[in-house]
Amino acid sequence: MGLNLPASLSYEKRGRIAIITMNRPEAMNSLTKEMLIGLEAAFDDFNKDPELRCAIFTGAGERAFCTGLDLKVALPALNEGDALGYEDPAKRPFQTVYKPIICAINGVCVAGGLEFLLGTDIRIAAEHAKFGLAEVRWAVVPAGGSHVRLPQQIPWAIAMELLLTGNTIDAQRAYEVGLINKVVPADRLLDEALAYAERICENGPLAVRTAKEIALRALSNEPAFVLEKTMSARVFASEDAREGPRAFAAKTKPEYHGR
């Protein structure tokens, strides 16, 4: 394959289907900088491989799909200006991947995990999955596209509830508001995702890619992503954004002062 991926990622090509798995279950599949770089490389390979028509994106283990970045490590780095995500301010996860991506959510899907989900096309969740954006609880914002994509994909009031409270919703509620397509028992999750992928692979590949590309490009989200990145930078540089991860690491209640 020629890809130098970290052990925390696996990339399997099964016929016309790629299966890309975050493989760090002991850490709830939380993301490291190496994983972010590896995921971009794996999906770029998938996007360019003429033999592959559909991808399944999932996490290892039974507890979590992905819980985003490790606050104890990532937020201090972001405070200091270390770009852990995409350096192009107009780019977000899967923004230029025009082949279909099916997300198989095997557990908790919060923070950066939810931001990755928002870039996928069809979403199947295990019954015990939970969804949320807890960033505001730690005085930061989900700057990976959530402010733009989430209100596009679910009703405004529900999007604001997730963005402003930091609360989570369960799989059934996520299905009711249209965030996911289907809820299944955990032991059927991969089979359901594969069934969707195989059905897509029966269709004309050029037509499928074009349908997704038109839908994505018609959204014209790039200026909104630049706005999100620019405005979120002032939050990450704030005193509150230093207090948030400190309190998280110490397991104490943070004291915020709005500066």
Rank of each mutant, 00 (worst) to 15 (best):
V73T: 15
L75F: 15
P76G: 04
L78H: 01
L78Y: 09
G81Y: 03
L84K: 10
G85Y: 12
Y86I: 09
E87A: 09
D88S: 07
P89L: 00
P89I: 00
A90R: 11
P93T: 14
P93E: 14
F94H: 02
T96G: 03
T96A: 13
T96P: 11
V97Y: 10
V97K: 10
V97D: 10
P100C: 13
P100Q: 12
I101M: 08
C103N: 09
A104P: 00
A104L: 11
A104T: 12
N106G: 04
N106M: 02
G107V: 02
G107Y: 00
G107C: 01
V108D: 01
V108K: 04
V108Q: 01
C109M: 06
C109L: 08
V110Y: 00
V110C: 00
V110D: 00
V110W: 00
A111H: 09
G112N: 07
G112R: 09
G113P: 02
G113M: 07
L114D: 01
F116Q: 05
F116N: 08
L117H: 06
L118N: 04
L118A: 00
T120Q: 10
R123E: 02
R123Y: 06
R123W: 12
R123A: 00
I124K: 09
I124S: 04
A125N: 03
E127I: 07
H128S: 04
H128D: 09
F131G: 08
F131K: 02
F131I: 03
L133C: 03
L133H: 05
A134C: 06
A134L: 12
A134Y: 10
E135Y: 08
E135H: 14
V136C: 10
R137P: 02
R137M: 12
R137C: 01
A139F: 07
A139I: 07
V141E: 02
V141L: 12
P142W: 03
G145P: 10
S146H: 02
S146D: 05
H147T: 04
V148A: 12
R149K: 15
P151I: 06
P151Q: 07
Q152K: 15
Q152G: 05
Q153E: 15
P155A: 04
P155R: 12
W156S: 08
A159V: 09
M160T: 14
M160Y: 10
M160H: 13
E161K: 15
L162K: 05
L162G: 02
L164M: 14
G166R: 09
G166F: 11
G166I: 02
N167K: 15
I169E: 02
I169G: 01
D170C: 08
Q172R: 15
R173F: 11
R173S: 01
R173V: 13
R173G: 00
A174R: 04
V177I: 15
V177F: 13
G178D: 08
K182Q: 14
V183S: 03
V183A: 07
V183R: 11
A186Q: 14
A186C: 00
A186D: 11
D187T: 03
D187G: 03
D191L: 04
D191Y: 01
